[in-house]
Design a protein around this nucleic acid. Sequence first.
DNA 1: TATTTATGACCGACTGGTCGGTCGGTAAAA
DNA 2: TTTTACCGACCGACCAGTCGGTCATAAATA
Lengths: 201, 201
Amino acid sequence: MPKIIDKDQKRRDILGAAVTVFSRKGTAAARIADIAAEAGIGKGTVYEYFSSKEEIFQACFGFFMDEINAVVLQRIYAVADPLEKFSAFFDAWISALSAPVMQSFMIMIEFWAEGIRRRGSDYGFDMAGMYSEYRLMIQNLLDDCVSSTAIPVIDTHSIAAGIIGAMDGIMLQWVLDPGAIDIEKALTALKQIVMAGLNTR
Amino acid sequence: MPKIIDKDQKRRDILGAAVTVFSRKGTAAARIADIAAEAGIGKGTVYEYFSSKEEIFQACFGFFMDEINAVVLQRIYAVADPLEKFSAFFDAWISALSAPVMQSFMIMIEFWAEGIRRRGSDYGFDMAGMYSEYRLMIQNLLDDCVSSTAIPVIDTHSIAAGIIGAMDGIMLQWVLDPGAIDIEKALTALKQIVMAGLNTR
DNA sequence: TATTTATGACCGACTGGTCGGTCGGTAAAA
DNA sequence: TTTTACCGACCGACCAGTCGGTCATAAATA
């Protein structure tokens, strides 16, 4: 086995393994030895790159979010028209469902749990902040649609929370019982409702 | 300290304490000693009523769901008209937000995590089944509305998943950052969208 | 080039602390 | 006196994190 030179790449490899293991077994039940095995390295080596399980978990947040954003958010930047941008947003999520990173969607539940448990305190990752940013992005998109069409003024902040919530909640039901939910159909129905609301005049 | 005679009541007391502790610290970090302290009894006594932490956790599911249903579902049975029933459903949830049981909403995250982790296998509680029932209830409500009005035929199963998902997702954002979400406003906005859709003709 | 030395990536046996579950005992009630 | 609700000291399995050591590669030396 040749030695690795690229420390950053190795760090990412470990984080990728950690996301997989945390997603599969949950943060508490995940063993450092599991992460090491998943990454194909020894347990001691994990501690050459991270100082604690906690640090690994916190780093997973940024790593996972970056991966999600890479397959979702980037697609909507190319579009200019607000309504089309909105449409692209849903399409991006729908087509991202088959991306490898979605196999680890369950780690979101761990982030929710830890994010809530430590809300308010300074902490290695900021779930509340991430959701705030996400809501704001959707809200701005909604505001753009409202001002560029004859849509009556609506509570765009609440609607933004509802849209994000619906996507989270639908995906939650999907991972809970993949056979009972046609995820593509469900997200498409959500898209149609929102788009229909935005096309009202 | 007089001895207690009502074993069922004591069991419920312990479960109530367990829900509180599981919700506050998470399943893994919750200690049996914490639950005992919360219930005001000794650790050994807990094992007179339950044989393991796992059994307590599984029993919490039914206990918590019964409490939620007591403050939510019962209110809509009194209403007959489909549209009004739907309205009552949202109102019931909104007014249930201040119920004591909602203080422990975070235990839902534990149920989601364990429910997903053990999906498919026989297990002490059935998250997927509960969501299926819940979706079916909403779907029937939607179907009633569709057939009793001039609403065009819609994908009521997907819509039902979306409504439940939106409520879960909005409440998740709320517990994650209570200051950023006006939960009553957000649920009211969701209600208005759904009701507006059902009043289309 | 061949050989020795230095570096640091890599590893897993070990340790110290933690906690689910047990069990022998106390005392209230019957 | 018997029964049983109640209890917390105790035990052993488990695991995060440590540490002494190995070995592939690079640098220095001959």
